[in-house]
Write a protein that binds this DNA or RNA. Structure first.
Lengths: 152, 152
DNA sequence: TAATATATGTTATGTTATAACATTGCAATG
DNA sequence: CATTGCAATGTTATAACATAACATATATTA
């Protein structure tokens, strides 16, 4: 898998700023910092890694609630997703385009990839309907090896 | 969703015993206790709930590693699954029939249901192939409301 | 500017999970 | 039948992940 280019990162950050502006969402300094740390990381990042990074950037210790609150804000608004299988967070590269997001996560290089194709979404919907089940949210995390890593 | 009947539970426990016997897997007392606690619970159960239950049953305190080791054994052999989205464990009612298992989890009544249909599995496989990705394991957890609970 | 809401700081603690090493029990081998 | 090896368990401690509760600050708006 390929990590994101600098321009993709910039675009991603800019998109979030625009969405917040037009929706009157308070993208505060901390929230912005946390978002940038997450997306720039390329790989899923853990809350306490974000905490350390923030503390370093600002030259003063931050505390867990600060980070978790920012993460909550970012998740609520679809800018970030949590990968439950590895207790880590990733940026969303097409926020607002969809509610649910599915992931491929390489166990070797740790790079992840969103894989939100509609046919998969449909299939999941159908499964739910078939079971008379009303979905509120879906966790789909596929772990394994990406092309590069499985060739090594 | 419906919870399992007593006979289903018994059958499930018996099946695990048979599988362990024929595969020479050491189904020790603790492992058996943990499995029974999990399947009898009907709902996803947390490790520390299992710990409390075990401690009560045996009238002496057990420790986390005891429970986690038993869980590891049960997961490795496909008798139990972990629901990553809620840090809880559930029994598998058709162990060895498949490697991957997908779940519907009702947020209201907490009852869960396995939903491992092949078309869903196929769809996930295709998504992986399409991304040149080799799956080692999949987490699919669909949270929402079951029929009963959404009618209330 | 006072009142209100929103966000952040701070301390403490709750929850989930594992490392590390000691001990036990049992089976295989000499 | 000792002894060695191994799998499982006991025990202590701590790591890793997350939130409660309350104080303070900052922004908004009446």
């Amino acid at each position: 898998m390929k990590s994101k280019s600098t321009s993709e990162l910039k675009a991603s950050i800019h998109r979030v700023e625009e969405i917040c502006k037009s929706n009157k969402l308070g993208l505060t300094e901390i929230r912005k910092q946390v978002f940038e740390i997450i997306v720039k990381n390329n790989k899923p990042i853990k809350a306490y890694e974000i905490l350390d990074t923030i503390s370093n950037i600002n030259n003063k210790p931050s505390h867990p609630p600060t980070v978790y609150r920012a993460i909550d804000f970012l998740i609520e608004n679809g800018f970030v997703h949590k990968l439950n299988s590895i207790n880590s967070f990733v940026g969303c590269f097409h926020p607002k385009a969809h509610k649910e997001c599915y992931f491929l996560i390489c166990k070797k290089c740790n790079i992840y990839q969103e894989c939100c194709d509609d046919s998969l979404k449909d299939r999941i919907s159908k499964t739910a309907i078939h079971n008379n089940f009303v979905i509120s949210n879906t966790t789909l995390e596929i772990e394994g090896h990406c092309l590069d890593c499985s060739q090594k």
